[in-house]
Amino acid sequence: MEIIVCLKQVPNTTEIKIDPVTNTLKRDGVESIINPDDKTGLEVALQLKEQFGARVTVLSMGPQQAEKALGEALAMGADHAILLTDRAFAGADTLATSKTIAAAIKGMPYDLIIAGRQAIDGDTAQVGPEIAEHLDLPQISYACEVGYNADTKVFTVKRQFEDGYQILEVEGPCLLTVLSTACKPRYMRVKGLVDLDNKEVQILRRSDLVIEDEVLGLKGSPTKVKQTFNKQYNTNKQKLVLDPAEAAKLIAATLKDKHLI
């Protein structure tokens, strides 16, 4: 089985702060990590590899420094790593990104493509599903469990919603987007780290893709950011002194009024 895992390097948003003047992310000195949902996607792929045998390729689009995230993926057990990097790809929104990645995948063998549900820096959850559309593949988003029958070559996927789930069966080739709750990603292996000395990340540039210039990078990005801002919390405090029975009634009425209960 050939599995491609799409993986994005993102700033660790648990450490990130927003510049109050410009309302943009302060990325200086913030550690870059593999996007958590994508890391889980890699773990799902590695578990399929262990159970059924597979070659796992990790693919990322981003600046040269994303090589580090790919190195981490290789040390976890991925077989091959590809980085799509070129000035022509810069400034891409989800549409331009998904078209670029789809163009790269088009020439590759695959039975399964796994992407994380969404990246913690943009939170759009669009790139995975868009890749599937560009490649005309069946897709299942929000996967939290992935099984495979090697005889029938059918994947059984549990698709999680807020209030329930679906169990779906799909034949490969297909695309899944997985939730970070699906499983706990493994640690990098010491041997995998030592072996990085003999591994290279395959670099793909603009010239390696068959795609029109208009759909790439900033030019190919219809998304326009109008404004970004820090959410202001309006606490609207009020102090009341009531006996417990009255207080309980008031709390219940207020919550009901706000449709919270």
């Binding site: 190195g71 040390a75 990098m188 990085l196 290279e200």
Partner: peptide, 18 residues
Amino acid sequence: MNSQLKYELFEKMVKEFT
């Protein structure tokens, strides 16, 4: 890959594990 990356990621892994 650059052999420095191996040490950098090794440290990251052991820190996470710890």
